[in-house]
């Protein structure tokens, strides 16, 4: 059974299963969704991002129970900032939140700092790879493509923040690499609602320019009920 979605029922290859379908959570970090994080320091309305945590948590729990491969991405730079583009640094300083400079949650968008951590509601299990990325797209300068191909993954379900920045860039990269992408519209957000709407429209254009769009409810209804409790550690959620 496919997932009811716009502009096509997803995925094109038919029923998505644990063997070929992964869930990827983009940048659900304190720096974006938390008080005192990078987004907050840059003056953004991070409450819009925070609102994605609850539905994303339901989806994460269901995908874990169904045995899907789950990946998390984390935007952040090496502590020596050797991977920080000059223009990215300049832009962040201009926004009042220079990457690498101290904030209430430690050095902003810097690996190892409190703000760089994933929010406690969505903390990864040890078996769920975390991709540390210096760019907007999670494929740039990372082993994401390698991890997905090794598992035979061809369908990607996207949740996370922000829809107009890292989520869209990563979906675009994934699309070019041949992955069939599904965006969960209530599990992603932008700090600007107009941008969020623009991205949804862009995704839907031309019969799914970057994949398909649906809701967390639709994907949860389409997932087969787990026949058994998953083996191993109990779900911490």
């Amino acid at each position: 059974m496919t997932v009811p979605a716009r502009p096509y029922d997803w995925p094109l290859s038919g029923t998505p299963g644990p063997a070929d379908t992964a869930l990827i959570l983009i940048d659900m970090q304190i720096d974006f969704c938390g008080e005192g994080g990078f987004a907050h320091q840059a003056g953004s309305d991070f409450a819009l991002l925070q609102a994605t945590i609850a539905p994303t948590r339901r989806v994460l729990r269901a995908f874990r129970a169904a045995g899907h491969f789950i990946l998390h991405t984390r935007e952040g730079h090496r502590p020596d900032l050797s991977d920080l583009n000059d223009n990215k640094r300049w832009r962040s300083a201009r926004a009042g939140a220079e990457i690498g400079s101290p904030g209430p949650c430690g050095r902003m968008l810097t690996r190892g700092e409190p703000g760089w951590q994933i929010v406690p509601e969505l903390v990864p299990l040890p078996t769920e790879p975390v991709i540390d990325k210096p760019g907007k797209g999670a494929f740039h300068a990372t082993d994401l493509d390698h991890l997905l191909r090794r598992r035979g993954i061809r369908n990607l379900v996207f949740a996370g923040v922000t829809s107009d920045c890292c989520v869209h860039t990563t979906m675009s990269e994934a699309c070019d690499r041949g992955y069939d992408c599904l965006l969960l519209e209530d599990c992603t957000a932008s700090v600007l609602t107009a941008h969020h709407a623009t991205i949804l429209n862009l995704t839907l254009r031309d019969h799914g320019l970057f994949g398909a769009v649906t809701t967390s409810t639709a994907v949860l209804e389409a997932l087969p009920a787990p026949t058994n409790a998953p083996s191993g550690a109990p779900d911490p959620l």
Binding site: D80, D86, T142, D143
Partner: peptide, 22 residues
Amino acid sequence: DIIEVTGRSGFYGTDLDALLRL
């Protein structure tokens, strides 16, 4: 910087190229 390599080449699946170009 230390580059963690999984393949044979230091460029595969790493940020080596980005670091050098930067």
